[in-house]
Computed example of a mutant assay.
Amino acid sequence: MAGIKHGAPQVPSPLRVMIYFESTGWFNTTGEEKTNEILPTLNEVIASWKENGSELLGTFDRDILTAGPAGNTGWHACFLYNIPDLQTVADMTHSFRETGLDKYFRLEAVIGRPFFLLEKN
């Protein structure tokens, strides 16, 4: 059986980026810290991502059948974005470092493209 022939994958513009989100130190904080410090900062950072030209396409939270640490998957939720360029991706992950959110959460960005069999341009 012959395979589908196509050239090398083309890097899309904007970039298609999956951001994996894992709660780490979050579990070692008090309810007061979560409510008064961590969640307001997290909400500010994520709101700022709306202003950098990124488009949120969807989210996925694994919490229906899981609780506690992420385990082998290494993530609790993921966010799918179209992002203008690689520097913007780096700025988004860095926003967790510069605000101290990396003490409570881990981010990992993966760059891909729309799946050609399901999303045709």
Rank of each mutant, 00 (worst) to 15 (best):
E98P: 00
F60E: 12
R106P: 01
T30M: 05
V11R: 02
S23W: 09
E37Y: 10
L15M: 10
F105A: 04
L101C: 02
K50W: 15
P14N: 10
T66W: 06
E22C: 10
T30S: 11
A8E: 14
A67K: 15
E33H: 03
L117K: 09
K50L: 15
F21R: 06
K34F: 07
Y81T: 03
Y20N: 12
A8P: 06
L107D: 01
L39T: 13
D61V: 04
S48D: 13
T30R: 05
A90S: 11
T35M: 07
D85Y: 07
C78G: 01
F79M: 15
N36W: 05
L15V: 01
D91Q: 09
E119S: 09
F60D: 10
L80R: 03
K103C: 00
D102M: 07
I19V: 14
F105K: 03
L118R: 07
R16V: 05
R113I: 04
W49Q: 06
E33V: 01
E119W: 11
E98Q: 13
G100D: 04
I111W: 02
Q87T: 11
E51N: 05
F21H: 07
K103A: 07
I38E: 04
G74S: 05
A109R: 01
A109H: 02
W49H: 13
H6S: 14
L56H: 06
L107M: 12
V11C: 09
T30F: 03
E37F: 08
G58S: 11
T99Q: 05
V89H: 00
I83K: 02
P9W: 04
L101I: 00
F96N: 00
T41P: 06
T99I: 02
M1K: 11
N28P: 08
N43V: 12
T29C: 09
E108F: 08
Y104A: 06
Y104E: 01
G31V: 11
D102T: 03
S54P: 04
A47Y: 13
T29L: 09
P14D: 10
E22T: 02
L117T: 08
H94S: 10
E44V: 08
P114H: 00
G31R: 10
T24S: 09
L86R: 11
C78H: 02
R113G: 13
K50A: 15
E33D: 08
T35G: 06
I64G: 06
E55D: 14
M1T: 13
P9I: 05
L118I: 02
G74K: 06
T73W: 14
L101S: 00
I64W: 09
R106H: 12
W75Y: 15
K34C: 10
T88E: 02
L15T: 04
T41I: 15
S95F: 06
D91Y: 06
H94E: 13
L118V: 05
A47K: 15
V110A: 13
L86Q: 13
P9G: 07
L57T: 12
N121Q: 12
L117E: 13
G112W: 04
I38S: 02
Q10C: 07
T35H: 09
L80H: 04
T93H: 00
A8V: 15
Q10V: 15
S23I: 04
K34L: 12
K120L: 12
K5N: 13
M18A: 09
I46K: 08
V11Q: 11
L80E: 02
T93K: 07
V11I: 14
S54N: 11
